[in-house]
């Protein structure tokens, strides 16, 4: 076992010298999580909008259900996706298990409810603010939805960043459905778990450092979006 100081300097060397294994893991992590965020946004934002402004039976029950899904345990999601994609599962013929696609599916399922719930809250607040004005201006439902999404754009972006933060830091589900296969499905979090158990702290620390940097960047982006929103709203 290396001592901490040695491991730390080795990890910095790996980052600075552009170690190909390390950066291939980072790039795969970003590809998987960013794709999951895009898919979750496509599902979550319209769902949130529908729950915020739609008028249909069961809306309250669906809202409670979606909010409950925000706390989904990742390993349970991983298990469910595993069962569905395994060779004996309903989608086994697609042969997606232990591929990045399976990891994207798992992460999408994990963060879509978060994005949907945060979008609903955001759009609901904006809708309450503009409901009377939009009715007075005779906006069609489509015009209303477009205007609401535009007015809520900064808060929606914050919701997407929150989803990305959750996805990039997730380990349980991607471990189960991805299998942590070297050069294929190994992402930052699963690599950190593996390399730590092997005692290869240099790579684990290097990946951990990059993960923390990404978390800081995401938070900085959220803060900047917040400032931009404040400027735009001036309230």
């Amino acid at each position: 076992m290396q001592n901490f100081a040695e491991s730390f300097w080795s990890s910095l060397t790996l980052i600075v010298t552009g170690d190909s294994e390390l950066w291939s893991i980072v790039i795969l992590s970003l590809q998987v999580s960013l794709t999951a965020v895009v898919l979750a946004a496509v599902i979550g934002v319209p769902t949130g909008a529908l729950l915020a402004v739609g008028k249909f039976r069961g809306r309250q029950a669906i809202t409670i259900f979606v909010n409950s899904l925000m706390g989904l345990p990742p390993v349970v999601v991983g298990l469910c996706v595993y069962l569905i994609l395994s060779s004996s599962g309903p989608l086994g013929v697609l042969d997606l298990l232990y591929t990045p696609t399976a990891m994207i599916i798992a992460q999408t399922i994990l963060i879509a409810p978060i994005i949907a719930a945060l979008s609903r809250e955001t759009i609901l607040a904006v809708h309450e603010e503009y409901q009377d004005q939009f009715t007075s201006l005779c906006l069609s439902n489509w015009q209303r939805l477009k205007a609401l999404l535009w007015e809520a754009r900064f808060s929606l972006l914050t919701a997407l960043l929150a989803g990305f933060g959750r996805a990039i830091a997730e380990v349980g589900a991607v471990m189960i459905v991805g299998g942590n296969i070297n050069h294929l499905t190994r992402v930052m979090t699963t690599s950190i778990a593996l390399e730590t158990s092997k005692g290869n702290l240099s790579l684990a620390l290097a990946l951990g450092t990059i993960l923390v940097l990404i978390a800081i960047l995401v938070n900085a982006a959220v803060a900047m979006v917040g400032m931009r929103r404040h400027e735009a709203m001036h309230v």
């Binding site: 603010e129 503009y130 009377d132 004005q133 007075s136 205007a147 007015e151 735009a232 709203m233």
Partner: peptide, 12 residues
């Protein structure tokens, strides 16, 4: 028809 409210309602 048009309406102006007590509190100004303006888009961002």
């Amino acid at each position: 028809q048009a309406m102006v409210f007590q509190r100004p309602v303006l888009l961002r």
